[in-house]
Design a binder for these strands. Structure first.
Lengths: 153, 153
DNA sequence: GTTGAAATGACCCCCTA
DNA sequence: TAGGGGGTCATTTCAAC
């Protein structure tokens, strides 16, 4: 994934702010014609810089009332791809990373209620290479933004 | 935030999959006319179930190459709103929660490089009520999905 | 439904490797 | 001179009333 020129950064910023911006709006903001703006956006999608477009949905609105972060301690020999595939199948996982620290992976889970969360944790503990889990329940949201800041690094 | 009927859940699922779905597409999927679909979507936005629409951008594409989770240990007396406001101002924070566990808050940070991350951590440690921080660097993404599962709880 | 706005694709121009 | 952008215009599709 190459870093991109300033024009593309500005286009991405517009689309982070509003994923349904029209090409005319994007073009106005960054100084391009409608079709040039569309070409750029199509290209960003094709190259994978834009993974897609989505609604930002309040989890409670869909009956997801519990969020937790589960840290996984593994036997250390599990192949990355095996773990990725296993976690992918757990639909309650919205994000998962390998990490540098005490644990080996960190997983963010949403669940409908506490028993549901318990089932998800059981399932994670049932993975043969998972030796231990450490669950932190999330209480209140302090900040929630698009997963990329709107400022420049 | 009320839980919603099945039709709204299905609409949300369509918009999670593609935030730029047209009202005609939504209507087809869930069995509504174009204008009924629009009414529903407008209502979901107005009621806050849909917070907005955004592009899902690969952080590296914008020069954000480092991700970390920072746990904050506080003096325990800081008002929620004070902490929320302080963290809100740190643009490198993409998510922050109060948590039940050893730490008091968990913050997800993106940064351009390691020195940048270090500056962000310094800034967090500089908050008067933050007594200690514990940083976990994220290495690889195993799973990254819209922040709500597409299945029913 | 009708009417205006947006998206899309065809076509040509310019610059540069 | 081929390829990557960019602009303009005509057509189709969508949104809004």
């Amino acid at each position: 994934m190459p870093d991109l020129d300033d024009l593309n950064h500005r286009i991405l910023r517009v689309l982070l702010r509003d994923g349904r911006s029209t090409y005319a709006e994007i073009g106005n903001e960054v100084g391009l014609s409608v079709s040039a703006a569309k070409r750029r956006v199509d290209r960003l999608v094709r190259d994978g810089a834009i993974r897609g477009f989505t609604a930002v949905v309040e989890p409670q609105a869909m009956g997801w009332d519990i969020e937790a972060v589960v840290q996984l301690y593994t036997n250390g020999t599990v192949p990355f791809e095996t773990m990725r595939r296993d976690l992918e199948h757990v639909t309650e996982i919205v994000e998962a990373f390998t990490v540098a620290g005490a644990a080996d992976a960190m997983v963010r889970v949403v669940a409908g209620d506490v028993p549901h969360l318990e089932r998800v944790i059981s399932r994670l503990r049932g993975l043969s290479y998972v030796q231990q889990t450490d669950t932190t329940m999330l209480l209140s949201v302090l900040v929630r933004r698009p997963n990329v800041p709107q400022t420049a690094p």
